[in-house]
Design a protein around this nucleic acid. Structure first.
Length: 111
DNA sequence: GTTCTAACA
DNA sequence: TGTTAGGA
Protein backbone atom coordinates (compact mmCIF):
# COMPACT_ATOMS: atom_id res chain seq x y z
CA UNK A 1 0.00 0.00 0.00
CA UNK A 2 2.89 2.37 0.52
CA UNK A 3 3.91 4.28 -2.56
CA UNK A 4 6.71 2.42 -4.26
CA UNK A 5 9.34 3.97 -6.43
CA UNK A 6 11.27 2.60 -9.36
CA UNK A 7 14.92 1.79 -9.39
CA UNK A 8 16.06 4.96 -11.10
CA UNK A 9 14.51 7.21 -8.49
CA UNK A 10 15.81 5.08 -5.66
CA UNK A 11 19.28 5.30 -7.16
CA UNK A 12 19.08 9.08 -7.40
CA UNK A 13 17.66 9.35 -3.92
CA UNK A 14 20.49 7.34 -2.41
CA UNK A 15 23.20 8.69 -4.71
CA UNK A 16 24.17 5.31 -6.08
CA UNK A 17 24.04 3.73 -9.51
CA UNK A 18 21.11 1.65 -10.72
CA UNK A 19 23.67 -1.00 -11.48
CA UNK A 20 24.81 -1.10 -7.89
CA UNK A 21 21.27 -1.59 -6.62
CA UNK A 22 20.79 -4.54 -8.95
CA UNK A 23 24.15 -5.85 -7.84
CA UNK A 24 23.00 -5.81 -4.21
CA UNK A 25 19.94 -7.73 -5.29
CA UNK A 26 22.07 -10.36 -7.02
CA UNK A 27 23.83 -10.93 -3.74
CA UNK A 28 20.58 -11.17 -1.82
CA UNK A 29 21.11 -7.92 0.06
CA UNK A 30 18.23 -5.93 -1.32
CA UNK A 31 15.25 -7.76 -2.80
CA UNK A 32 12.72 -5.38 -4.37
CA UNK A 33 9.45 -4.92 -2.50
CA UNK A 34 7.71 -6.00 -5.65
CA UNK A 35 8.45 -7.12 -9.17
CA UNK A 36 5.69 -6.31 -11.63
CA UNK A 37 4.51 -8.16 -14.71
CA UNK A 38 6.89 -6.00 -16.73
CA UNK A 39 9.75 -7.18 -14.52
CA UNK A 40 10.14 -3.67 -13.16
CA UNK A 41 11.44 -3.55 -9.62
CA UNK A 42 9.47 -1.47 -7.12
CA UNK A 43 10.83 -0.29 -3.80
CA UNK A 44 9.21 1.04 -0.64
CA UNK A 45 10.43 2.69 2.52
CA UNK A 46 11.70 -0.57 3.97
CA UNK A 47 14.03 -0.95 1.05
CA UNK A 48 15.22 2.64 1.41
CA UNK A 49 16.23 2.09 5.00
CA UNK A 50 17.74 -1.25 4.13
CA UNK A 51 19.78 0.29 1.36
CA UNK A 52 20.91 3.05 3.70
CA UNK A 53 22.07 0.39 6.11
CA UNK A 54 23.93 -1.47 3.38
CA UNK A 55 25.61 1.68 2.16
CA UNK A 56 26.67 2.61 5.66
CA UNK A 57 28.32 -0.75 6.14
CA UNK A 58 29.90 -0.58 2.69
CA UNK A 59 31.35 2.82 3.47
CA UNK A 60 32.97 1.18 6.46
CA UNK A 61 34.58 -1.22 4.00
CA UNK A 62 32.53 -4.15 5.20
CA UNK A 63 32.54 -6.84 2.50
CA UNK A 64 29.27 -7.67 0.78
CA UNK A 65 28.96 -11.20 2.24
CA UNK A 66 29.46 -9.77 5.73
CA UNK A 67 26.87 -7.11 5.09
CA UNK A 68 24.48 -9.87 4.13
CA UNK A 69 25.03 -11.72 7.39
CA UNK A 70 24.61 -8.53 9.35
CA UNK A 71 21.29 -7.81 7.67
CA UNK A 72 19.92 -11.30 8.03
CA UNK A 73 19.76 -11.09 11.77
CA UNK A 74 20.11 -7.50 12.73
CA UNK A 75 21.94 -7.15 15.99
CA UNK A 76 23.23 -3.77 17.10
CA UNK A 77 26.34 -5.43 18.48
CA UNK A 78 27.17 -6.68 14.99
CA UNK A 79 27.25 -3.18 13.61
CA UNK A 80 29.27 -2.11 16.59
CA UNK A 81 31.82 -4.86 16.10
CA UNK A 82 32.07 -4.15 12.39
CA UNK A 83 32.52 -0.48 13.14
CA UNK A 84 35.37 -1.20 15.52
CA UNK A 85 37.03 -3.53 13.07
CA UNK A 86 36.62 -0.93 10.39
CA UNK A 87 38.18 1.70 12.61
CA UNK A 88 41.18 -0.51 13.21
CA UNK A 89 41.63 -1.05 9.49
CA UNK A 90 41.38 2.67 8.79
CA UNK A 91 43.85 3.49 11.52
CA UNK A 92 46.26 0.99 10.03
CA UNK A 93 45.81 2.56 6.62
CA UNK A 94 46.51 6.00 8.08
CA UNK A 95 49.69 4.70 9.67
CA UNK A 96 50.80 3.09 6.43
CA UNK A 97 50.20 6.31 4.52
CA UNK A 98 52.13 8.29 7.10
CA UNK A 99 55.07 5.91 6.83
CA UNK A 100 54.84 6.13 3.08
CA UNK A 101 54.89 9.93 3.15
CA UNK A 102 57.84 9.89 5.50
CA UNK A 103 59.79 7.58 3.23
CA UNK A 104 59.09 9.83 0.28
CA UNK A 105 60.41 12.84 2.17
CA UNK A 106 63.54 10.94 3.12
CA UNK A 107 63.96 9.92 -0.49
CA UNK A 108 63.61 13.52 -1.63
CA UNK A 109 66.28 14.68 0.80
CA UNK A 110 68.73 12.01 -0.33
CA UNK A 111 68.15 12.82 -4.00
C1' DG B 1 13.39 9.05 -20.60
C1' DT B 2 13.38 4.72 -18.12
C1' DT B 3 13.50 -0.27 -17.57
C1' DC B 4 15.12 -4.99 -18.60
C1' DT B 5 18.95 -8.77 -19.22
C1' DA B 6 23.39 -10.06 -20.32
C1' DA B 7 28.04 -9.58 -21.18
C1' DC B 8 32.47 -7.38 -21.42
C1' DA B 9 36.45 -4.33 -20.07
C1' DT C 1 32.18 -1.09 -10.98
C1' DG C 2 31.07 1.15 -15.22
C1' DT C 3 29.60 0.67 -19.70
C1' DT C 4 27.39 -1.32 -23.70
C1' DA C 5 24.02 -3.90 -26.47
C1' DG C 6 19.28 -4.39 -28.05
C1' DG C 7 14.64 -4.56 -27.17
C1' DA C 8 10.16 -3.16 -24.51
Amino acid sequence: MNPSIMIFKLAKLMHVSVHQIRYFEENGLLPPALTGDNQYRMYGTDEMYRLAHILLLRQLDVAVPQVKRCLEHYIAADDQALLKQSTRTLEQQITDLQVQALQQRIGAIQA
